[in-house]
Design a protein around this nucleic acid. Structure first.
Length: 477
DNA sequence: TTAGGGTTAG
């Protein structure tokens, strides 16, 4: 019924009004989640005879870009532009809707991974006399960063300034975040200081980003100083700010008391009222950081708190906790958690299975590991390369070089090919057994298959002989 | 459009 209603509305009018109503209907279909209907409607619009204006085109591309149909957006853009929009383009080019279309399309192309098309479209837009908005510049800058073209990205900021387009807080945030990722911490921090000096008002997201990169670089003092400065910058710290600081404290191996005093401070600021931290992602990150620091009890406490506050947990955080329980030998608790997640209707994914499997393999229960691998498959979860490496490691531990080599051969003949981790695992096992010739041969093979030796490769083969001597020394005593 | 989530080997 809806479809016929839409159809009649579409065919009843001619020209601009009809198109406008079509766009409105497309928007409705999008909001209602009727993706199939929406797509048919758009195709009707494209194939029909009425003119599609830049505003409609812009809106359509935007909807497609935001919906899961991002890959359809460019083709629609070019179809309409080529067939219908052209006659109007000359005088419409300087209109905002066309700039918006280009902006939406650049964003869609970026999401699609078609970065070269995005940059080309940008050039096309500027050559046609369109003035890109700050949003477009920021978007394109992000694209250059992901392409690893840092200087070109920085050039975008320069260019926008020269063209009289003022960078926004989004631009600064993106710029500082990306420079941080590229390990150019000092530069990022200087840019932030310049932003302040130039009188641009930072917001809490920008500051959180700066705190985050300072913490990651081990500049804890600067990170905390910035936190203290927030009040004078008229920014109120939120849950993410506190989490970022606390995470930085853990990563810089600050004393536990210092981290808990920040927890208390956060609670005192009312962050606990609405369920702290504000979202499970923060918990997950903190739990993992605590586990890595071998502070398993603290990790478990936080995990329990997450369940209390959010009612349920995601498979991701379960996998993290299961992994850490397995690592510290608390296998029973790992298994209990695995059962608990199933009972609560949170079906384990390959990460959860791998986490449990590695715990079981660590406890040298290779048969159980195998049976878990089968269960993984039965539950529609496809074991991946990591699952195989976990089994390989278990086999190497219990059955020695022979089992390890057998499994490696099996992997080479199967769909899931061994990677550097697989080779390192077997190399370690061979060296431990004193089979250095075989190890040397395997290293050659590893290199031939395109895997470089890394720190772990060397430590695997070099530490093992030392251990053999230890064993010999003990037995001759 | 902007911050924060998990895999294996030593």
């Amino acid at each position: 019924m809806l479809r016929s209603m839409l159809r009649s509305s579409f065919s009843s009018g001619l020209g601009r009004e009809a198109t406008l109503s079509t766009t409105a209907l497309i928007r409705c279909l999008d909001e209602a989640g009727l993706v199939g209907e929406m797509w048919r409607m758009i195709q009707d619009m494209v194939c029909g005879s009425c003119l599609v204006g830049p505003a409609d085109l812009s809106e359509t591309v935007r909807i497609l870009g935001n919906a899961t149909m991002v890959n359809k957006a460019p083709s629609i853009f070019y179809q309409i532009k080529g067939r219908k929009c052209k006659p109007n383009c000359k005088h419409l080019q300087l209109h905002n809707p066309d700039a918006n279309t280009g902006s939406a399309l650049i964003s869609a192309l970026g999401k699609l991974g078609r970065k070269d098309s995005a940059t080309r479209l940008f050039d096309e837009m500027t050559q046609n006399g369109l003035h890109p908005t700050a949003k477009v510049y920021t978007n394109l800058m992000g694209i250059y960063f992901t392409l690893g073209r840092v200087e070109k990205a920085l050039g975008m900021v320069q260019e926008m300034k020269e063209k009289g387009c003022a960078p926004t807080v989004y631009t600064h945030t993106e710029l500082i975040k990306e420079l941080g990722k590229a390990q150019r911490i000092k530069e990022a921090y200087n840019i932030f200081m310049n932003v302040l000096r130039e009188g641009c008002k930072p917001d809490v997201v920008l500051i959180n980003n700066v705190i985050n990169l300072l913490g990651k670089a081990g500049r804890l003092v600067d990170a905390i100083k910035l936190f203290e400065d927030m009040e004078s910058l008229h920014c109120t710290p939120n849950g993410v700010t506190y989490n970022t600081i606390i995470k930085a404290l853990f990563e810089c191996t600050a004393p536990a008391s210092e981290a808990s005093s920040w927890f208390e401070r956060m609670k005192a600021n009312g962050m606990d009222e609405n369920g702290f931290p504000p979202c499970p992602a923060a918990y997950c990150s903190l739990i993992n950081t605590l586990g890595k620091a071998k502070r398993y009890e603290a990790a478990n406490e936080l995990f329990q708190k997450l369940k209390e506050n959010c009612g349920s947990s995601s498979a991701r955080v379960y996998a993290v906790m299961i992994k850490h329980f397995g690592k510290c030998g608390r296998l029973t608790e790992a298994v209990d958690l695995f059962d608990e997640m199933k009972k609560l209707g949170c079906s384990p994914d390959v990460y959860a299975y791998n986490a449990l499997m590695s715990g079981i393999a660590r406890a040298v229960r290779i048969d159980d590991t195998y049976s878990l691998l089968r269960t993984t498959e039965e539950n529609g979860c496809v074991p991946d390369l990591n699952s195989h490496n976990i089994i390989l490691n278990g086999l190497a531990g219990t059955g020695g070089p022979q089992w390890a080599m057998e499994m490696l051969t099996k992997m080479k003949n199967s769909k899931i090919k061994p990677d550097a981790v697989s080779y390192n695992t077997v190399l370690h096992c061979l060296s431990r057994a004193g089979m250095f010739e075989k190890a040397a041969k395997l290293m050659k093979e590893m290199q031939l298959n395109g895997f470089e030796y890394d720190r772990i490769t060397y430590s695997s083969i070099l530490e093992a002989p030392g251990k053999i001597d230890e064993v010999r020394a003990r037995t001759t005593l």
